[in-house]
Design a protein around this nucleic acid. Structure first.
Lengths: 160, 160
DNA sequence: GTCGCTGCAAAGTCTTTGCAGAGAG
DNA sequence: CTCTCTGCAAAGACTTTGCAGCGAC
C-alpha cells in the first residue's frame, strides 16, 4: 500500500498486465469493468493456483462492496483463458485451478499429502518434448507435466 | 471367438488381468459380477481412452441384454481406479478418461484439433523427473505429462 | 444513448447416492 | 441365506445461460 515501495518488479509487471488486459478488451469491443479488474488483481496477488470458487471467496472477502457473482468469475476466467492470459490446470480431483499465464512457462510438482503445488522448469525436458512431438509427426503447441509425490514437510510429519 | 487363435499374447494378458481382478475382489469381500467383468473386458478391448459415458455406450451396444446402468460404470471405474487397475486422465475439457493401468507407464500426446491421443515414453525424461523431485525434496510417487499439438492428419486437413 | 456486463436464479452437465429387489458366494 | 450389487431415479457438485436492470464508453 506504500507509494514508494510499490514500484517493485512485481508492480511494474502488474501495470503491464493490466494494460495488456485493457488492450485485449478494447480490441474485442469488450468493456473494462471493476469486476474484471479485481479478478485480474486477485489472480496476480495470490500467486497460488485458484479454483473459481476460491477466487470468488477471495473477492468477496477483499471487496465485499462489489458483491461479485460467481457467474462473473466463471465468465471472466473463460475470457482470460481464451485469450491465453490465464492457464487452467485440472489435476485428479474435480474442478479446475487457474493461474496467470503471464509468468514464464513452468511445470508442477504436487504433494499428494497436503495438496500444495510447487513449480519448476527444466530446459532439457522442454527440449526433449519438442523432439518427441516432431518424431510423432505432431506440431507441438503446449505441454504440461505434473509430478506427484510427498513434499519434505509431509515426509517429516509422517516420520514422526 | 475362435478357440485356437485366442491364445495370443493379448488373450493371455487378459486372462491374467481377469484373475488379478477376481483376486482383488475376493481380498476385499466384494463380488465378481457380470457387469464388472464386462467393464474390465471393454476397457481391455478398446485400447483407447474411454469416458464413463463412452464406456457405458459401448457396453450397451455390445451387451444390450445386461442393461447396465451408468451408475455401475462409475462405481466400477472408481473401484478399479482405487485399486490402481485403471488410471484416469483429466485433460482440459470436462470429464475424465480412463485407461487400463496394467500397461507399462507412458505419457500422452493429444491432438488439439481432433482430440486423438497417442502414447509415448522417453527414458531420459523419466529419469530427469526423478532427479527434479529429489532436488525439490519430494519423494516422487507418480507423474504425468501431456503434450498438446496438431497431429499429422489434422495438419494435412488444414493445409488443404 | 447504446450495447455489453452483472447478479440472480434457473438450467445444464457430469457424478454420486439411496433404495428395494436381484444375485453372488 | 447373507450381504453385496445393480438399475433407477433423485440428489449433488460444478458450470453455464437467460434475463432485466446497470454501467462503461
Amino acid at each position: 500500500m506504500g507509494s514508494l515501495t510499490d514500484f517493485t518488479e512485481r508492480t511494474i509487471e502488474y501495470t503491464k498486465l493490466l494494460s495488456d488486459f485493457k488492450q485485449l478488451l478494447k480490441a474485442n469491443g469488450l468493456k473494462f469493468t471493476i469486476q474484471r479488474e479485481v479478478i485480474l488483481e486477485m489472480l496476480y496477488n495470490s500467486d497460488e493456483h485458484l479454483t473459481p470458487e476460491g477466487l470468488h471467496h477471495l473477492i468477496q472477502e477483499k471487496h465485499p462492496d462489489l458483491n461479485t457473482g460467481i457467474a462473473t468469475v466463471y465468465r471472466t476466467l473463460s475470457l482470460l483463458e481464451d485469450s491465453a492470459m490465464v492457464t487452467s490446470l485440472s489435476f485428479g480431483a474435480q474442478g479446475k485451478k487457474y493461474e496467470l499465464g503471464a509468468k514464464d512457462h513452468h511445470d508442477h510438482i504436487i504433494c499428494t499429502e497436503c495438496g500444495s503445488i510447487s513449480e519448476f522448469v527444466d530446459e532439457e525436458i522442454e527440449l526433449k518434448q519438442k523432439k518427441i512431438a516432431e518424431k510423432l509427426g505432431f506440431l507441438m503447441q503446449e505441454h504440461s507435466m505434473q509430478i506427484y509425490g510427498i513434499c519434505k514437510e509431509c515426509q517429516n510429519k509422517i516420520k514422526k
